[in-house]
Design a protein around this nucleic acid. Structure first.
Ligand SMILES: [Mn+2]
Ligand SMILES: [Mn+2]
Ligand SMILES: [Zn+2]
Ligand SMILES: [Zn+2]
Lengths: 127, 127
DNA sequence: TCTTAAAATGCAACAATGTTGCGTTTTTAT
DNA sequence: ATAAAAACGCAACATTGTTGCATTTTAAGA
């Protein structure tokens, strides 16, 4: 396996993601990093961070893609089985790490990842 | 409300979606319709069909967007609370209409839509 | 059936997002 | 210090979805 290096840009971007309360899109990360590195480099860093399992990707129903830090113990082969909430008012996407969904699926399916996103009004926008 | 019309293209596209076992992407629909209408028109038709609640949109974790027919009684204000399965081998996305997930979420969130997608190996690709 | 307004369409142009190739720079191990 | 691998910047490209506008089609009423 190709080993991955910790560069200045990579550390900075990880820090940005980890210190954010909400999941961030590529463009948001780019703005927050203020010319730290090229647009393409951000994409490549995000890829590496996902391979290392320190961040995860969230595809919201409206098509936008966001990234959030992983809040689990750093272990291999884990599943992000928590709920995400996407607010249609403030467009924030949050990890609800404590909420774990349950389901039962025919056993001829092999489940490797779950992606569970609820949309609506978040607690801050709710009246 | 702006009323919507049933055109040749719209009926054809709905038929394509309804007769497919798996959810279809915009490009797949375009290929299956073989020059029926413009690319843009397909997007607009998909929008109308979603407003009419005869199809629904599925955003898979890998970023691709697919469309599937709704298999519920034609009622207003329904929620598509069923599970989708996205196969990482054959890239098919299927509605598992019978599998209903359960979850509990803090009551200061107002849930309007749910999008639950499992990824892995589908029953056809599973050995 | 004829008339007419609204809805739908085609086309071109644009925008957003993500990817690839390649030459250069930086990191890490020897 | 040297060398190989990894990361980077930049430009170019690809894919996906959107918008404006002139033209055509649809559906409903006279
Ligand atoms: Mn999360
Ligand atoms: Mn479905
Ligand atoms: Zn909100
Ligand atoms: Zn499969």
């Amino acid at each position: 396996m190709k080993n991955t290096r910790n560069t200045v840009a990579k550390s900075a971007i990880l820090e940005i993601i980890q210190s954010s309360k909400v999941a961030l899109s590529h463009v948001e990360i780019q703005k927050l990093s203020e010319g730290l590195c090229d647009r393409v480099t951000i994409y490549r860093i995000l890829d590496r961070l996902m391979i290392e399992d320190v961040i995860h990707k969230i595809a919201t129903p409206d098509g936008t893609v966001k990234y959030a830090a992983c809040h689990h113990k750093h272990e291999e082969h884990h599943i992000h089985n928590h709920v995400h909430f996407s607010c249609e008012k403030c467009h924030s996407v949050t990890c609800l790490d404590t909420v774990k969904p349950s389901y039962s699926i025919p056993k001829d399916y092999l489940v490797k990842e779950i992606n569970f996103t609820l949309s609506g009004i978040c607690k801050d926008c709710n009246e």
